[in-house]
């Protein structure tokens, strides 16, 4: 296992969005020993973000990518973090994540999730994308799952949509972020093939 984990040092993973999913997933990957992370987000840290995102009160007002890069390096000083403070559209996705073996989709809005899935499928058929879908509220541990469609993995319950009645709460958001990070490790450590024809369904 020790030699296997050495592989992580040479791995580059992209994190598209540094909110609840992205900040928690990036932190898990940094702790596991991934050598290089490419993180991208346009937003700044607010006090309201602290309910589930991996930032601290003294970072409120700072750019998320800068604050996250700092937190990742505090945990793992050897990690290389490439931080992009920008809005990700199709062109930026292609440019920013070119060197990444795996891209973690960590956006909030469903239309952005679809945008990056379509962009990566079209431009980078050899890359994996690990997306999150359905993480609002609390409870329902056993409804959280991962499904594979070729080079695309989707983690979450696939149904709980964020609303005023169903806010994103820290445990479930972090659980889905951890499922995403765990899937990244499996892709890298087990050398999964993106173009495998047969997909796996868990039911």
């Amino acid at each position: 296992m020790k030699s296997k984990l050495e592989k992580l040092k040479g791995t580059c993973v992209g994190i598209a969005g540094c909110g609840g999913l992205g900040s928690n997933c990036a932190m898990a990957l940094a702790r596991a020993g991934v050598g290089r992370l490419v993180i991208a987000d346009f937003d700044v840290v607010t006090a309201a973000n602290l309910d589930r995102q991996y930032y601290f009160l003294d970072q409120v007002g700072r750019k998320k990518v800068e604050a996250l890069a700092e937190n990742l390096r505090r945990v793992n000083p050897d990690i290389v973090v490439e931080a992009h403070d920008l809005h990700l559209g199709p062109d930026e996705v292609v440019r920013v994540f070119r060197d990444c073996r795996v891209i973690v989709e960590a956006f909030d809005a469903a239309d952005m999730k679809l945008m990056i899935i379509e962009t990566v499928s079209e431009h980078f058929p050899d890359k994996f994308i690990v997306a999150g879908s359905g993480l609002a509220g609390y409870g329902g541990n056993n409804e959280l799952r991962t499904r594979r469609l070729g080079s695309l993995f989707i983690c979450g319950d696939e149904q709980s949509e964020v609303s005023d009645e169903l806010p994103p709460l820290a445990p479930r958001v972090a659980a889905v972020a951890a499922l995403q990070a765990n899937q990244v490790l499996e892709i890298v450590l087990d050398d999964l093939e993106p173009a495998r024809g047969e997909d796996v369904w868990d039911e």
Partner: peptide, 10 residues
């Protein structure tokens, strides 16, 4: 055919 809902939230 494979179809999966994309749900907002992150």
């Amino acid at each position: 055919v494979e179809a999966i809902h994309l749900i907002s939230g992150g």
